[in-house]
């Protein structure tokens, strides 16, 4: 399905419209903390994602004000990149590499079992709020394939069984 509809259909997306001065303050601080030679829409989005783990609706507006772009342009950039997400992630983010090496070494099986243990089908958030499953095209550790990462911590030479144990122990 297309983005236009998808974003309308994000559960709870409308909740984000609630203006929240604390949230906005945090966003403003996160944007202003940037120490890059050039501050852009993209760098501000990254700063926000670093701060919150996702990009709240208010951040689109705050970044527009800060960079002088229109909200629509900020959204255009934000919606272009897969790495940005617009709902609050669950407690832990589990990324499973499905690049060629990991694929050959058994990533499909890990994905299947990990999704099953999280109670989801493929990428997404588990209902209990514990885990978010994402696919990654390459985690950059092909020698140790198959690789998964839990909260940015890499685990190599995985098997489906070990991965499930790790997820369960979260």
């Amino acid at each position: 399905m297309l983005c236009f509809v998808k974003n309308f259909a994000i559960p709870g997306a409308r909740d984000l419209t609630v203006a929240n001065e604390d949230l906005r303050d945090r966003i403003r601080q996160a944007i202003k903390r940037q120490e890059r030679p050039t501050v852009t829409v993209l760098s501000s989005l990254l700063a926000t994602q670093d701060e919150f783990g996702y990009i709240p609706r208010e951040a689109i507006e705050e970044i527009a004000v800060y960079t002088g772009a229109s909200t629509n342009d900020v959204w255009g950039v934000a919606s272009f990149y897969k790495n940005f997400q617009f709902t609050e992630p669950n407690e832990h983010v589990i990324e499973i590499c499905w690049g060629p090496s990991c694929h050959i070494m058994g990533a499909p099986e890990i994905i299947e079992e990990a999704a099953e243990v999280l109670g989801i089908e493929g990428e997404g958030d588990s209902v209990d709020g514990k885990g978010t499953l994402r696919y990654n095209t390459c985690l950059g550790a092909c020698a140790r394939a198959p690789v998964i990462s839990i909260d940015h911590q890499l685990y190599g030479r995985m098997t489906a069984k070990k991965a499930v144990e790790k997820i369960k122990s979260l």
Binding site: L2, N72, D73, S79, F80
Partner: peptide
């Protein structure tokens, strides 16, 4: 108006629709 989303899903639209 801006371009939103990417690739085959890319379309025109407004911020968060």
């Amino acid at each position: 108006l801006a371009f939103v989303d990417r690739g085959g899903k890319g379309l025109i639209g407004t911020s968060i629709g």
